[in-house]
Structure formats: structure tokens, C-alpha cells
Design a protein around this nucleic acid. Sequence first.
DNA 1: AATAAACTGTTAATGTTTTAACAACACTTT
DNA 2: AAAGTGTTGTTAAAACATTAACAGTTTATT
Lengths: 209, 209
Amino acid sequence: MTKNKRLSRACVLRLELYLEYIEQLQKEGKQYVTSSEIGDALGMASGNVRQDLFGLGSAGRPKVGYEISHLVGLIRELFDLDRTKKACIIGFGNLGHALAGSNMWGRGGYNLVAIFDNDPSAIGIEYRNIRVRNIAEIFAVIRTEGIEMAVITVPATAAQEISEIVCSAGIRAIWNFAPAKLITPDTVVVENQSLAWGLITLSHRTKPA
Amino acid sequence: MTKNKRLSRACVLRLELYLEYIEQLQKEGKQYVTSSEIGDALGMASGNVRQDLFGLGSAGRPKVGYEISHLVGLIRELFDLDRTKKACIIGFGNLGHALAGSNMWGRGGYNLVAIFDNDPSAIGIEYRNIRVRNIAEIFAVIRTEGIEMAVITVPATAAQEISEIVCSAGIRAIWNFAPAKLITPDTVVVENQSLAWGLITLSHRTKPA
DNA sequence: AATAAACTGTTAATGTTTTAACAACACTTT
DNA sequence: AAAGTGTTGTTAAAACATTAACAGTTTATT
């Protein structure tokens, strides 16, 4: 029933911010929140907030605001955050390490269940109850565990090869931190997280007039 | 002279991809590139590419394509990549480590000249010829060195405090990896790099119909 | 019960980005 | 030299996103 109307990236970003904010309010025991409260907290116009929530099929009460628990439910449902999917990290260098240690896991959507590396000195060590495995095991583990998403933090030169392995193992999504364009079957969703991009954007935005 | 026409984020992202691609062609000794070559390589329509380059005040030759060296120059100039600015990293955990080790530095715009942390066991160690300094030195070093940009990779709880220090020291830009909204003077450009966002986007995009 | 106030839901207007289309141009071939 | 071809520069249309506005609802107040 939930019509999967295409959502702009900007809108997804905003909704994620709303969610973060209202989940915090929820922890504080608040029941209702108004569009202006959200807007003020995040530095945007209340009307913008209302329209985004309108798109969700919102159900606020005039003079009172939106029921927080309901709104949280709507957004989590939209993002499919309550179906916990399995994820793995491939490449346990500094970046892989940093990502593995992030508190984003469990905050919704994905559960980190495996880590792979090809460095013999890394293989076998335990990090947050996850043992680092040999890259050779990728295919089998993805199949066996039913892993849906792979975070790729290997060097650019290895990225395409890894991507082919995980795709053939039946992965559904790739979060690619390698600065390389991956060629994948179009059933696989790829999110490229280029770090260099942030740097260039800053350079551009601070360019002297 | 260069009219600083506002550029959408999407367009900046695309131009960065073009730059990466054609700089690679340049290394290979190629002289000219056509919009279709770029489009095919990056998976987008050639018309889209042409229009972006049009916005730059492009100068391609029909039947031949764009002169690579000229195009590289235009984009680097647009992004202010040839004026090398100084940057520092604050927070030398795994993420700070990963960023410090990235090859994005020097590829343009910013030069990493300082690293700070508050962990006594980290302070003093050298990484890529940069000695990790005590966080207490931030203000002085930014002033003395004329550092323009700070990468913040400290925990969310410390982010606002650090941000105030660097702002008062006269920083011009902040690249914020902490999951916290920073309140800054509006002369300072802030780029928030939320990692959680990529995760949620993937969850959303792979949601079963 | 009537009035006022505080919000939301929704529509309309505006602005922006993407897509499509094609005329103009420069090379190549005959 | 004329016709043909591939590619750009530019315009126009369509799609999309943002902003603004306000009518409609619910609650509070008198």
C-alpha cells in the first residue's frame, strides 16, 4: 500500500535529521513536537518541515503538533530501519576500523556481522566480538549468513574485483569508499562515499570572490 | 571577472568526477576528450556533460572534443584547487588516522600541516612527517601557521567546544565528521559529513517494494 | 457558546535542475 | 569543392524542489 514515491536525496537527508532530532526528544520523554520546533532546531523553515512530513502521510494535530512516537514510526518505516539487515566491512584499515567502531550500527537498518581483510596480521583479531576473516571467505560467508550489504574500504585498485565477488555472492547493496567507479549489475544498489568530494567542496565554497 | 554563479551541489559533484576522469586521461597522454567519452565513462548522458561544461564557459572543438589541459585548468580554477591552503585534523582516532593517510591531500586545494589529539599516548607520534600535537595548542598553531580549514573527528560531545576554539582562531572552513550540529559564525563554511546518512540511504534504497 | 490562537494540511507560485533537441561548426571523404 | 558526419554550444521544454500562502481544525479562553 505504501506508495514508494521517489524521494529526492535532499529530502532523505532532511528526514534523517528530523528523525535524529525527534528520537532525542523522545528519549527526553516528550510526546509531541511542532513543525516550528523542528525547524528552529535544525535551522530551516517550518513550512519546509511540514511539507516533508506531508509527503509521509503525516498525522499531526493542529494546535498540538505531531505525535513523536508516531512520527518516528513513519520515518523508520520509510527508511526500512526496523528490518535489521546484515552488513559486512571489507578492508580493515584505518577507515574500516573507524567505520566498524561507529555507533551508527544498531541505530537502525544494518547490523555489522563480519569483517574481512587480506592482511595476515589483521586476520583473526577480534573487534567488538567480530573476528576479522580472510578475504577468501567473502563469498561463502555472504551466502551463509545472508549478508545484504558490503562496505568496501579497500584500495581503489582492488575495489572492482571485490565488488564482483560480493555481487556474485548475491549482495543487494554496496557502500563504496574506494575512489573508483564500480561496474555492477543494476540490481545492486551502490552508494559512493567519496571523501575527496567534501574537500573539494570546501575549497570551492571558500574560494575568494 | 569569473562570475561566481552559484553551483548546485550535484553539479559540483559531477564536475569533480569529470576532473578525476580527465586528469587520468591526461596522465595517459591524451589530448582531447569528447562529452560522450566522459558520459560513457561515468554513466551519464553526454548532453548532461556538455551542459555542465557550458556553464564553465567551455571551449570545445566540434568533431574533436575538449582540450584536456584547458578543461583541467578550468575546473581546477573553479574549485580553487591551485591555491594550496593549509588544513589540520583534530582528533587522531581511527577516522582521523584514515583521513590523514588519504591521498586526497595534495590532489588539490589543501595541504595537511597539523594534527591534534588529547590522548597523551597519541601526542608526539609522527605520521607522514606530521607530529601529533596537544589539543591545547590548537589556537596558537592555527594562528601561527595560518591554517584555513579544520577537520573535526572528535566525539560529538566535544565537537562544539573544538569548533568554538577554531572559529575564534580565525579558521575559514570546518569539515565536520562528528554527528553534531555545530553553531558557528556564518563567516565560517561548515561541511557536515554524516556517515550515518549513507547507511540510511542504502537501507531506504533497498527497501522491498 | 463564541471567539481567539496555534497549528496543520494542501495548494499555488516560484525557482531550479535535468532532459531533450537541434542549429552551427569543423573536420573527412569523395 | 561539395556532401556527409560527428561533436559542440545553446535554447526550449519538462520535471522537480522550494517557498509562500492560507483555509481548515483543534484547543484554550472568556
